[in-house]
C-alpha cells in the first residue's frame, strides 16, 4: 500500500528503479527502528488513551449507548454540528482556494505578512476567538452593525457557529493547497493554452483535477477539526436547545451532571465518525496518487 505519495516525476523514477530491489531487501537502514518508534509512540500517546475512552464507554450496553447517542437533542445537535462544520469547510474550500491562489500566484506588497496571518487561528486560544467573534458580530459590533440593517443576524444564531468554525479551521485548506499550487508546472498550462483552451477551460479541465485531491484533504481536515470544536463556539452560538446546541456542548452538559459514561459514549460516537472520515480521505489520497502514476502501480506488482 502506498500513502499520500506526490505525483512527482522524480519519485516515479526512483520507484521504478528501486521498487523491485526493495522487495528483496531494504537498502536504507532504520526501517525497523523508526517504524518501531512511531508505533510505540502512537500506541502510548494516542491508542492507549483512546482505548481508555472505549473501555469507559463500554460500561454501557449497546442499547444504552444507542439511547444516549440517539435522543432528540442529540440528533438535533448532530445536524447542527455536522451542518455547520460542513458549511464552514465549504466556505474555507471556496475562499481558501482563492486565498491560496492569490498568495502563491500574485506578488503584491505585504504578501508575506498576510501569508503569516493564516496560521493565527492555531495560536489564539479558542475562548478568546469566540469572545472576540461574538463581540464583532453582535448587533452593535464592528461587523454586526453593518449586517443587522440587512436583516442578517450572525452572533447567537446557527450562523454564528459557522463563523466560529470557519475561523478555527481556516488554515487547513490554505496550507494544504499552497504547496500543490506551487508545484503546478507552467508547461501544463501553456500546453493547454496552445491547444486552444480558454483560461476557464484550462482551469476546469487541467488545473482543478490536479488540485482536487489536496482540496479534498484540506476540506476534510477542516471539517473534522470543526466538528470537535467547543471553546470558541459556546460564546457565539447562543446555545439554544434544538436550535444552536452543538454536540460537544452536550458532552460538557453530561459532564456537568457528573455523567462521565454518557459523555464518553457521545465522545466515542463523534470519534468514530471522525476516524472513518479521515481514513476515507487518506484512502482517497492513495487512490488519487496511484491514479496519477500508472508506472508506479505497475512496478509494485
Amino acid at each position: 500500500m502506498r500513502g499520500r505519495a506526490h505525483p512527482q516525476p522524480c519519485h516515479r523514477l526512483t520507484d521504478a528503479m528501486f521498487a523491485p530491489l526493495s522487495r528483496r531487501r531494504r537498502v536504507l537502514p532504520g526501517f525497523g527502528l523508526t517504524l518501531g518508534c512511531t508505533l510505540v509512540y502512537l500506541s502510548l500517546l494516542i491508542l492507549l488513551p483512546l482505548s481508555g475512552l472505549a473501555v469507559k464507554a463500554s460500561q454501557l450496553s449497546f442499547a444504552e449507548l444507542w439511547e444516549v447517542a440517539s435522543g432528540e437533542r442529540a440528533w438535533a445537535s448532530y445536524r447542527i454540528t455536522f451542518g455547520a462544520a460542513f458549511l464552514a469547510a465549504t466556505i474555507n474550500a471556496c475562499f481558501g482556494l482563492i486565498v491560496a491562489w492569490v498568495l502563491v500566484r500574485y506578488p503584491f506588497p505585504g504578501r508575506r505578512a498576510i501569508d503569516a496571518l493564516v496560521d493565527l487561528p492555531f495560536a489564539l486560544p479558542t475562548a478568546v476567538a469566540g469572545i472576540t467573534l461574538a463581540t464583532l458580530y453582535a448587533g452593535n459590533g464592528w461587523i454586526g452593525r453593518h449586517l443587522e440593517p440587512l436583516g442578517v443576524k450572525i452572533a447567537f444564531t446557527p450562523l454564528g457557529i459557522v463563523v466560529a468554525l470557519t475561523f478555527i479551521s481556516l488554515p487547513f485548506v490554505v496550507r494544504t493547497l499552497q504547496p500543490v499550487i506551487e508545484d503546478i508546472e507552467p508547461e501544463v498550462e501553456e500546453a493547454a493554452a496552445s491547444l486552444g483552451a480558454s483560461r476557464w477551460q484550462t482551469f476546469l479541465r487541467v488545473l482543478l483535477p490536479g488540485i482536487f485531491p489536496a482540496l479534498l484533504t484540506g476540506f476534510t481536515l477542516a471539517f473534522s477539526r470543526a466538528i470537535g470544536e467547543y471553546g470558541s463556539v459556546i460564546f457565539i452560538a447562543g446555545n439554544m436547545p434544538l436550535i444552536s446546541e452543538i454536540t460537544p456542548l452536550l458532552i460538557i452538559s453530561k459532564l456537568e451532571q457528573y455523567d462521565v459514561v454518557g459523555a464518553t459514549a457521545l465522545a466515542m460516537v463523534m470519534l468514530s465518525i471522525s476516524f472513518v472520515m479521515l481514513l476515507a480521505v487518506n484512502a482517497l489520497q492513495w487512490w488519487a496518487a496511484n491514479r496519477h502514476r500508472p508506472g508506479a502501480a505497475g512496478s509494485g506488482r
Binding site: 508505533l39 483512546l50 475512552l53 473534522s224 458532552i251 479521515l278 487518506n282
Partner: peptide, 15 residues
Amino acid sequence: LITLIDLPFAVSPVV
C-alpha cells in the same frame, strides 16, 4: 498509520 497520526486533529480538545 497516517490516519492514526492525523487523528488528534479530529478529537475534540475537551475529549
